[in-house]
């Protein structure tokens, strides 16, 4: 984990940051690509009774049991439906693999450090505390998700 951080810092200095981006509702969200382990269509879940609402279930990811979270619920948006474009973005958060259900995958975006602005208190109805920054792209805004903050248990406990 610390290694990832160090490595990402190195990348930032060399040629900017790379973000895997996806849509949750109308929001374009980017996650540091070094924190993303894989993106798959594994959306057949085993629901977990008594789990917090944001937990959609668990999957078998090559022999490991991985929690899949509903990013919409975490961000306080209404729970979405699983559609043909729904993807499972597996990220590494504090040493644990966790899947994030997102509505649609978008491109990989490169951003230089000085293009990243501090996030406003509220982005599209979502609290700013989940975001690390905002990047202005040609046509829209991309918010950078603070994965660890979004997945802390109290943020995800509802």
């Amino acid at each position: 984990m610390t290694l990832t951080r160090e490595a990402s810092a190195a990348v930032a200095i060399a040629d900017g940051l790379e973000f895997a981006t996806f849509y949750v509702g109308d929001l374009l969200i980017g996650v540091n690509i070094l924190q993303v382990e894989e993106i798959n269509r594994h959306v057949t879940l085993t629901p977990v009774p008594h789990a917090p609402e944001c937990v959609r279930g668990v999957i078998n990811l090559r022999g490991e049991v991985v929690t899949v979270m509903d990013l919409r619920t975490i961000l306080g948006l209404p729970r979405g439906e699983v559609t043909a474009t729904t993807r499972n973005v597996v990220v590494n958060s504090r040493g644990e693999q966790i899947g994030l259900l997102v509505d649609r995958i978008a491109d990989v975006v490169k951003a230089q450090g000085d293009n990243i602005e501090a996030p406003p208190a509220n982005v599209g109805g979502v609290q700013g505390r989940f975001f690390k920054g905002v990047v202005k792209l040609d046509t829209e805004l991309m918010v950078i998700l603070d994965v660890d903050a979004a997945l802390t248990s109290d943020a995800a406990a509802h």
Partner: peptide, 25 residues
């Protein structure tokens, strides 16, 4: 083991992967 978001579930002791690849709690 179950992930950190499900640690409070008293009714579950973990998960396993069954012969057909599906997860069972």
């Amino acid at each position: 083991p179950l992930g950190r978001h499900m640690q409070n579930s008293g009714c579950l002791a973990g998960a396993t992967i069954l012969g057909d690849g599906e997860v069972a709690l």
